[in-house]
């Protein structure tokens, strides 16, 4: 059964012995892959658990904010404007007399959505374009590299102000679209470099010699080996994209009220810091903890995936 032998070699792990009998798998003898190794390393790091827990909590809150907040974030009373903490309203009230705690809880959703959408978009677009340009090289590489140079030439904050004020957008979708549009070249460069390193390896040559096509080589051999830097960069970027959304809202081109987002609340509170500092503390604190959690998670994953950097 020649076909079977082929599959055995390509998959790397001999699941079936040449005579067709299943090979008894001893757990301790099984060689650990990069991912097993990384997981082993991560599972004994408190930082990993803490940041993962924070992120998990955040995702749950952004799906079901009602779990921990009983009030309506848009139910505001101007008579409470800028009032400090009181019983039942531990975080106090903002400029419009809305409960700061409720708004902070509900604001998580917009930030998490922008973060996830833009990171997914950047990761997919950047990894595909960068990967193809690194793998095929030649004219495709030249075109993609030059195009990414062009997008690279625009500082992201500046591009954000210009683009978002032109499309008059103020929704999660427009902000995410913009971040994807200007964010992909950075990831494309990382993916391109990783793919170029991976394609020089002997196992790629071996796969080629065995007659594997481009699709198979890319998906089965190069992608798993070039994925690590992409994942690490994306995790850290997710945090910075959330921060970017807040900054764009501050500049008046990001999300707009009546949307509830940390960016909107922080920028409203920042201008009132002299009168009511408590308004700034909670949304800004929540945002910073979120960004920090993603950076720490990314750092932990990087340390686990790339032992050389330790």
């Amino acid at each position: 059964m020649p076909e079977n032998t082929d599959a055995v070699i390509l998959d790397g792990v001999p699941a079936v012995a040449p005579d067709g009998a299943p090979v008894p798998v001893d757990k301790r003898d099984k060689p650990r892959s990069l991912w097993n190794d990384a997981w082993y390393d991560l599972s004994r790091k408190p930082i990993f658990y803490i940041s993962a827990l924070v992120i998990l909590f955040l995702i749950v809150i952004s799906i079901w904010p009602g779990l921990i907040a009983s009030q309506d974030p848009l139910q505001c009373n101007l008579i409470d404007s800028q009032n400090g903490p009181s019983s039942g309203h531990w975080f106090g009230f903002d400029q419009q007399g809305c409960d700061v705690y409720t708004r902070t809880v509900y604001g998580a959703r917009a930030s998490v959505e922008v973060g996830i959408f833009s990171t997914l978009g950047v990761a997919v677009l950047g990894a595909v374009l960068g990967g193809l340009s690194g793998y095929f090289g030649g004219w495709l590489d030249s075109i993609i590299s030059r195009v990414s140079d062009i997008f690279f030439g625009i500082p992201i904050l500046l591009g954000g102000v210009v683009f978002l004020s032109a499309v008059k957008g103020g929704s999660v979708l427009t902000v995410s679209t913009f971040i994807i549009l200007l964010g992909w070249p950075q990831l494309a460069r990382i993916a391109r470099g990783a793919v170029i390193t991976a394609k020089e390896q002997d196992y790629v040559l071996a796969a080629k010699a065995l007659g594997a096509g481009h699709g198979r080589i890319l998906l089965r051999h190069i992608a798993p080996n070039a994925l690590a830097p992409v994942i690490v960069w994306s995790t850290i970027a997710l945090g910075t994209f959330i921060s970017l959304e807040a900054t764009l809202s501050f500049l008046g081109v990001g999300l707009k009220p009546p949307a509830v987002s940390w960016g909107i609340d922080i920028s409203a509170a920042a201008e009132q810091i002299r009168n009511a500092p408590h308004m700034l503390l909670w949304p800004a604190g929540a945002l910073s903890v979120t960004v920090l959690a993603f950076i720490l998670l990314g750092d932990a994953v990087r340390d686990a995936l790339d032992p050389k950097l330790r």
């Binding site: 921060s243 807040a246 900054t247 922080i266 920028s267 810091i273 920090l292 950076i295």
Partner: peptide
Amino acid sequence: IVVSIPTFVTGY
């Protein structure tokens, strides 16, 4: 910590 806090918050 510096990286996690948005610039405009630090500024104000």
